[in-house]
């Protein structure tokens, strides 16, 4: 029997609602719901806004065309450019927050991984297999592979930008899993649909595989985010070295081994901060430039 009075339990629930992860999940759900509503509307009526018109990466793909010809390439509009601007501003202010708080594709990968963990906790053989896999993944060689594969994002980004400038069209569209997902009602087996399937399957065992290894928008955000004054700081004097933060990071960043989390893979989900048992050891802080200590 619980010894806590009901009023205290309700207060705790209210406090948890204002917790970082609750706020983040509510935000993620809101943006995903908007996209789902847009996809349904566009499927029912082609005259409604295409979900492609609200993809910030479309803005990056059409940027060169906009500055050189004043027009946008096929399937992109001014809205894509505005969203790209919004993402750049957000990244300058809040680092990787678009990936961790807004991006619907990141949210879907997170949910698939959460579903996998939920099943692992209830189906014992699955749980044992997953634990064995995680133990094997702690070998240094997998750390190196993870690190090397994470540069794949920049290769994808450079290929798309180069291809788009050279051909003046969305060269990535047929391979884009997000494009395949928002066109799911068309039931077409495209390369993008195959990649989408691979990403969703991989999400069962790896957190955010697309974000980690292939997302060109994530690569752009990582580069722009270097200029952001927002960062997670770790105080060595308060840190017990438990490495809970490192294990909780969905992007595989070794948080416990850094004094400032400025890694370009950081998606600002703040799960490391939330997992820390000493609130003063890990903290989200806003640096104020030109104010020396």
């Amino acid at each position: 029997m619980s010894t806590k009075p009901a009023a205290a339990r309700n207060r705790n629930r209210l406090a948890a609602l204002w917790g970082t992860q609750s706020l983040r999940r509510i935000t993620q759900f809101g943006f995903l719901a908007m996209i789902v509503a847009g996809v349904v509307r566009h499927t029912l009526s082609e005259d409604s806004t295409s979900p492609e018109a609200v993809c910030p990466f479309g803005g990056l793909e059409t940027l060169y065309s906009y500055f050189t010809t004043g027009g946008t390439i096929s399937h992109t509009h001014l809205s894509n450019l505005v969203l790209l601007g919004a993402v750049v501003l957000l990244t300058l202010l809040a680092r990787g927050a678009f990936c961790g708080w807004i991006c619907p594709f990141g949210t879907i990968q997170e949910w698939v991984n959460s579903l996998s963990r939920w099943l692992q906790a209830r189906i014992k053989p699955l749980g044992r297999a997953a634990r064995a896999l995680r133990r094997a993944a702690r070998r240094p060689i997998f750390g190196t592979i993870d690190r090397v594969l994470s540069y794949g994002r920049y290769v994808v980004l450079a290929t798309i930008i180069g291809g788009t400038v050279a051909y003046g069209s969305m060269v990535f569209r047929d391979y884009d899993p997000w494009s395949a997902l928002i066109s799911v009602a068309e039931f077409e087996l495209t390369a993008g649909a195959v990649i989408l399937g691979v990403v969703l399957l991989a999400s069962l065992v790896v957190e955010r595989p697309w974000c980690r290894y292939a997302c060109p928008l994530g690569a752009t955000i990582g580069l722009v985010g270097r200029l952001s004054p927002m960062r997670i700081q770790r105080e060595d004097s308060a840190c017990t070295g438990c490495t809970l933060c490192t294990h909780r990071c969905p992007m595989g960043i070794d948080v416990a081994a850094s004094s400032e989390i400025t890694d370009m893979r950081c998606i600002s989900c703040l799960q490391c901060v939330d997992s820390c048992v000493h609130p003063e050891a890990l903290d989200l802080r806003l640096s104020i430039p030109l104010t020396t200590k």
Partner: peptide
């Protein structure tokens, strides 16, 4: 566990 020492911060920061 061996953890990185806190680096000298260049600027003031706010929580």
């Amino acid at each position: 566990r061996q953890v990185a020492p806190t680096a000298q911060r260049r600027w003031r920061s706010l929580h």
